[in-house]
Write a protein that binds this DNA or RNA. Structure first.
Lengths: 232, 232
DNA sequence: CGTTTTATTGACACGTGTCAAGGGTGGTGG
DNA sequence: CCACCACCCTTGACACGTGTCAATAAAACG
């Protein structure tokens, strides 16, 4: 990627929102590139946070693993999202492991460069707070869901969240434009793939959605999902 | 509170960590005071975020309420903690409702004053990221817990978290220095007060902790709690 | 094509929520 | 100062959602 390509990636990222050209240029010039292949781990939970990444394209799943090997998906990341930046700024170990779910490309900065960048361009600090704040809010919402709602409702809410983040209109409805296995939905929803399978099977019967296996899910009746997600 | 009293409150707050005297003075001078009585709501979830608060003393519980009236306790706040600041900086509605669990005192700033304060003293932006980041990490941990662990284990982890935040050594062990009803523990743990009651009763039998009713909980065998929290 | 991964489906058990009834404790007001 | 009233806690019985276990089937991959 040349500098211009990098800059156009950066200017689409919320972290660089309302940044001036100088800032973008400075950031683009100090970045390095790391291509990622499906299933690659960009770093591992618990490692010292030496680099801060920005996903240029591709999709990444953010995993948190328990000592006994169980896994929870914190969230999915798309182009423009930051990876590991909060840990870098806090000088703490990475709290989770990002795994590529498809091939992609990242830009990255060393902890020192990132800190200098933010010091030199205060708008980036503001944006970092905005981003961290919105993740915080989303997690609060998920915590409340997991704490108070039945599995069916949580699965509906989870699918709708994916749609909000990354949904694409297609003729039959809305599509989630990347592969989501039942197991991954289970880890996003805090349940088992068995229950997910049963639930999705029922919804497919009802014609709410379609998309077997590795194909992308298509929600044909989003309003029904909303109803399920909001039902008393 | 006079300016000196305010400054000594501020300098104990992580949000003002490594701030110079000018910053503290500036912040202390531009703050207003709001005393809070037990059960007072400082603001309500969903309201426009016009003020950012700092708890000078007292204890506050941060509630998130669902549309159907169920409640989840996001966390407890103590002296030095910020309240509503992230919402103010993001110019979004407050995502939760802080309720005083005992009488206390807050300092507060209007959204505009707070923004000016941070713009004038960049170290505050860094600290805000640090704080938001640590809350984010704690929520990730709780989400993982609720998603993967049995109730007993979660209750143990929750009590230990209170101890970490606010525990006091006493002769019999460690004390959680504020009133925690079974119902509140239930809302912190994502379960019902019935299950909490049964679990604590069993632990009292075992001599792990003591403290009936409204008295403060005293953990007499913290190591046992740790074992329970970490058991496979 | 075989091998591996992922999904489907059924049977069953178990944790935990729900419902219900009573007992204590602290606070309040007469 | 005592009696009453909230409110909180305790305990039991029971039901139900959902995880666990198991066996099969269907895709995906090399």
């Amino acid at each position: 990627m040349d500098i211009d390509a990098r800059m156009s990636v950066l200017e689409r990222s919320p972290f660089f929102a309302s940044a001036d050209r100088d800032t973008l240029k400075h950031a683009a010039e100090t970045a390095s590139e790391l291509p990622i292949a499906k299933e690659d781990q960009i770093f591992r939970q618990g490692e010292e946070a030496s680099y801060s990444y920005l996903l240029a394209w591709g999709r990444v799943r953010l995993d948190q693993t328990t000592s006994d090997g169980r896994n929870v998906v914190i969230r999915y990341l798309g182009p423009g999202d930051l990876i590991g930046t909060v840990a870098v700024l806090r000088r703490k170990p990475y709290p989770a492991t990002p795994v590529a779910v498809e091939d992609g490309m990242t830009l990255f900065w060393s902890a020192e460069k990132k800190a200098m960048l933010i010091a030199a361009h205060p708008v980036l600090a503001t944006n970092a707070i905005e981003l961290t704040g919105s993740r915080l809010e989303e997690l609060q919402e998920r915590l409340r869901e997991v704490a108070t709602q039945r599995v069916e409702r949580r699965i509906a809410a989870t699918l709708l969240r994916q749609v909000r983040h990354a949904g694409r209109r297609v003729e039959e409805g809305v599509e989630i434009p990347f592969t989501l296995t039942r197991g991954e939905i289970a880890e996003l929803t805090a349940t088992t793939l068995h229950t997910v399978s049963r639930t999705l099977a029922a919804w497919e019967q009802e014609g709410i959605l379609s998309g077997k296996r590795a194909s992308h899910l298509v929600i044909t009746k989003p309003h029904r999902l909303v109803e399920i997600a909001e039902q008393e």
